[in-house]
Design a protein around this nucleic acid. Structure first.
Lengths: 227, 227
DNA sequence: TGCGTACCGTACCGTTCGGTACGGTGTCAA
DNA sequence: TTGACACCGTACCGAACGGTACGGTACGCA
């Protein structure tokens, strides 16, 4: 069925991904077109005929490659997640306090940038819209593929800061979720609802907000914080 | 099916709601049935024929009352929001520190309870799924109807705490959003994606989490916090 | 008694969409 | 040249859905 012979495996994928069905270049083109349709018109814009027309392929090929329409949606999420295979943190070397703070702020800006991106918003809207349907694992797929990446990167960053003496905490997961809450607040939901969120519009506003959030985070988890 | 008594215009609605189309008891029954369909099967379960069958009404009446299918969806959000017309905070009397802290925790528990409720999740999923369609104001409707209530209640609570000397902050909106982030984190999104979130399952777990979040909030905005 | 109103249940129509089938084209290998 | 293969474009089908129309029924009112 899936002959992944000429899939040039970019990036070191050594952490044993669960179901890594590599897509052929042609399939990636089709999925890219599907992403475009989704971003522009939402889930209802992803019709088999419309996608075939937009991608210059036949409906027969769609069903051969992805099984059915739900397979196309799942493949879109898997494909998009494979694109965001970010470098999972640096070597976590010892860094002075101010540069480590900049690292945290960089993570926060990256996080907000990803979350407010049109593709991410469209995929999240898709998965949430499908979450009610029983037997739909798009939500799990999205959280497994997308969130895991940012989570591992952030937790590595936090533990590096702990080892370097910049931070003090017991539960890494708890510290990460607090940082997430301080940075994102309810912006993600409001963005998905279509609202304008000023703090995500300009890089300047985003940097200002993240700086404040990281400041609060240090007051809660800094090495010189109260127990 | 529970037809709670037709309480038209309960609560003092003095803040000039934009479009407050009161529904007749029969219409509320239909909207209640629509809510049930939505919670169980998502947006696709709301078909005109299916709703008419579930509510024992005719399609003709649906179109007479709500205009078209989108009108039904909008009416569902307006109706649900009208049900959650919570008492907008107490008299904000001077309260000692420990009881004020309990007030904040009560707000947090209420917030998490509402957000994790099946009806709220279904409505939010609906609004988010429709947010991509141009000219759909369901998201605005939801945020205007639902979020405004919790926001005003929380901000009144925060300013009361400030006047009582328990809190110190400049920007009320900013303080509220920080509190929201500390309490909710990314649970709302994860719940909407269909994930299991332990902190929302038992009242005990919820209370524990909220207590920790309020603790963090006091360390950031308490009267004895650093500048 | 008759009439208007509001409503229910059903039948109907046009459209859209998921999914399948078929003919035609380019390519590679023997 | 011949065949196998992968693919495109189009046509087609059945089902589901939004929306409309019509007949029938209960109730209030003059």
């Amino acid at each position: 069925m899936d002959h992944h012979e000429h899939s040039r495996h970019d990036g070191a994928d050594t952490d044993g991904a669960p179901l890594d069905e590599a897509f052929t270049p042609r399939q990636e083109e089709v999925l890219e077109a599907a992403l475009g349709l989704l971003v522009e018109g939402g889930e209802r814009a992803i019709t088999t005929a419309g996608l075939a027309r937009a991608a210059n392929c036949s409906k027969e090929s769609l069903y051969k490659w992805f099984g059915d329409r739900d397979g196309v949606l799942a493949a879109m999420i898997a494909y998009q997640a494979s694109k965001v295979r970010v470098a999972v943190g640096g070597p976590a070397a010892q860094r002075p306090a101010d540069t480590y703070r900049a690292d945290l702020e960089g993570f926060g800006v990256d996080l907000l940038t990803v979350l407010s991106g049109p593709a991410s918003l469209a995929l999240n809207r898709l998965a949430i819209g499908q979450a009610s349907r029983e037997g739909s694992r798009l939500g799990d797929l999205l959280v497994a593929r997308g969130r895991r990446a940012v989570s591992t990167r952030a937790k590595a960053l936090l533990e590096a800061g702990k080892r370097a003496g910049h931070l003090r905490f017991e539960d890494t997961q708890d510290a990460f979720e607090t940082l997430y809450g301080l940075i994102v607040r309810d912006m993600h939901v409001r963005l998905m609802l279509g609202e304008h969120v000023p703090a995500t519009h300009s890089d300047q506003a985003m940097a200002n907000h993240v700086a404040g959030a990281v400041d609060q985070f240090f007051r809660l988890y800094g090495a010189d914080a109260k127990p």
